[in-house]
Design a protein around this nucleic acid. Structure first.
Lengths: 208, 208
DNA sequence: CAACTTCGCTACGCACGCGTAGCGTAGAGT
DNA sequence: ACTCTACGCTACGCGTGCGTAGCGAAGTTG
């Protein structure tokens, strides 16, 4: 393997600070623009005007408007952290409540619908959406599987199903109507789902 | 009240058949275009080319591209029917299974994400989205409330919460990853949610 | 300080979509 | 038959965004 042209002792590649500076400014401007005008509303010219970075300079770092949006979203969407608080319920309250909170206050909230829409047709956005989903789900699934190992959920519980039961209602409520979406609702969802697996009879396990 | 210029004995307003003919053609073309290119991809010129209707003719019936898209979506999104099969579970299996089926096969499925995205910014689309949601929810809520009256759900069950628990996972799975979304999954969701309210202890009802 | 890289700016030509005007034609209503 | 209305077509001018070329200025690296 060859070494990158300019590498620091620690191995981090040295980059011209001007590059990262403009990159940061362009990405934040793009993010703001995605939130206000939608993905299709992102124009290199609009980004240029909003960021104060010359149009030609933007074209030197990104090929396209879509490429720029993809880079922005990839930079913006960060997976949650496994809280690992000791009990399944506590972990889920943290994760699901955090999701609800993020969907209300985070600027990324207004972007998810656009990403889902774009993923519906554009393969590049579909790939990004899939990657983002897997990263985010990975954390939740780990929490759920840990709960199964601890006996907090029955052994035959399908982690993916539990995930959908937990996350679905939160996301759905966010993008439907004006009903409230807060920590209390998230807690009710968590407890209901846990109760669904807590009952004396798991669905389909009685009649055989 | 004055009578419309040309009214039939039954009260239905008589309209020039040419108007409805072009209206139908334009709306179907627009629907196809929304599905393939997204809401922002709908262009009067593209609709004209796809439908075979002259651009000027389209402008005679609709003001705008957004107005045309709104009319198309309003025409396309029809609320489900209350099945009223006798039991809550049967009704829910029908409704939730139907939703899952529609989200997989119906051309309207690829449109929902776009509508949600547009509703995020454009008030007109937000209003349409809200209206559509209320119509659709009305049916489900009626079914749930009937189940409560029959004692199939506890009296303190919040119908809206039940609705979100049922619908959320279906919609979420549709727009996330490539996992299967079929009648079997819908049935599992229904049974889990019913089990969540079937348990000996309703959440929060024990400690007071 | 010298070599190199990045940035800002101007100025393009091009394509696309908008929304309208004006006219002739064809179909609908009575 | 006669009137009225809707439709198709051509031809606009306008604005917006694309993506590139060429240059000088400013900043970075060694």
């Amino acid at each position: 393997m060859s070494v990158a042209p300019n590498a620091t002792p620690t191995g981090t590649t040295r980059v011209d600070p001007r590059l990262v500076r403009t990159r940061a400014r362009v990405l934040t401007a793009t993010a703001r623009l995605v939130a206000t005008a939608g993905i299709s509303g992102v124009t290199i010219e609009a980004v240029s005007e909003l960021s104060g970075i010359a149009k030609t300079t933007i074209y030197r770092q990104w090929d396209d408007a879509p490429a720029l949006v993809l880079a922005t979203l990839d930079d913006l969407l960060q997976p949650p952290v496994d809280p690992d608080l000791g009990t399944l319920r506590a972990d889920l309250l943290h994760l699901v409540g955090g999701l609800a909170h993020a969907l209300v206050v985070s600027p990324a909230a207004g972007i998810m619908a656009g990403l889902m829409d774009a993923a519906e047709r554009d393969p590049a956005f579909a790939a990004l959406h899939a990657r983002e989903g897997e990263r985010r789900h990975g954390v939740v699934l780990a929490v759920i599987e840990r709960g199964v190992r601890r006996g907090e959920l029955p052994a035959d519980a399908d982690p993916h199903e539990v995930l959908d039961l937990l996350t679905g209602p939160i996301v759905y409520r966010r993008y439907t109507g004006a009903r409230t979406l807060d920590a209390a609702f998230a807690a009710r969802v968590v407890d209901r789902v846990l109760a669904a697996y807590d009952g004396p009879t798991a669905p389909g396990s009685r009649d055989h």
